[in-house]
Design a protein around this nucleic acid. Sequence first.
DNA 1: ATGGTGCGTTTGGATTCTGAACCCGTCAAG
DNA 2: CTTGACGGGTTCAGAATCCAAACGCACCAT
Lengths: 164, 164
Amino acid sequence: MRWRELDQQECSVARTVSVIGDRWTLLVLRECFLRVRRFEAFQERLGITRPLLSERLQKLVDAGVLERVAYQERPTRHEYRLTPRGLDLYPVLMAIVHWGDVHMAKDGRRPLLHRHRVCGHVFDPVMVCSECQEPLKAGEVKVEPGFRADGETPASAAQTEAPW
Amino acid sequence: MRWRELDQQECSVARTVSVIGDRWTLLVLRECFLRVRRFEAFQERLGITRPLLSERLQKLVDAGVLERVAYQERPTRHEYRLTPRGLDLYPVLMAIVHWGDVHMAKDGRRPLLHRHRVCGHVFDPVMVCSECQEPLKAGEVKVEPGFRADGETPASAAQTEAPW
DNA sequence: ATGGTGCGTTTGGATTCTGAACCCGTCAAG
DNA sequence: CTTGACGGGTTCAGAATCCAAACGCACCAT
């Protein structure tokens, strides 16, 4: 498999990675969630080179994650905004931030804190089960075959229930 | 900023991306969570080239995400296992899987289903607030400065509360 | 002696990334 | 009416990374 053929894989991780898995793309999205919208702002804040920023933004637009919106005429200028599809990436970013906070922060000091307007507290993001609301642990989740486009029985390799 | 200097950034997203943001690395981790452990198995299942797999596994070991464990002597052979630090990446993978299920699945058909042993149901992963247990929405979270190593006042750029 | 297994490394050519410079439409100042 | 600034890109050469195929190595089995 080549990197560019990822989106054809029958796997939700592979298909998501084909959208957000390029270098810089997750950092561009970080800035988007911090309400950065303009080419110049992305470029300056990230230190990414201009050709690459241009290409990455275009890919995110093509994927429906961002939209390019005119914010003035004469001269026409555009900015990049998260679409609903892009906003749905929030849990991905929060999971990444939280892992970094826990495992990569020096002396346990977090660069940013998150406050939940709903309850007013500084919080951590927690991944829970939609059915019972309990926090998810990898060992408590069983992977089962879903639908496969080719109609074959899914290879249930690595389905033994050994611990990690 | 160059890609390799990412880990020096004062940002949890950047530091996490410096570990998991390389091409193939998230797919390697997907396999790890499916209990794949051996070099040959990763190589065959992913179709990644051998030199790259070798380098990615080594980086994950260096980052403390995987550990290299001998599973036999004569000849000595090793396998790669998730450490506790690696297991903590589970929410990241689940968030990615879920986004792919919702936004990239053809005809809404998911390649895999997840069953929660605790409650017995097929579920979706949901990111909630650790304090009030409510599902998180990007617009309901305020970003605040945390600790900064350089002692400066954090640049509160893009802190206006405009919608996306 | 030959072949197979598991886990890599080496090597040369194909992609991709980087850094610097350049281009374009518009406005504003000199 | 020329010059400069602003925002948002594109072009281009050289550097870094990736790919595919082949090779190496320790052991075992035939």
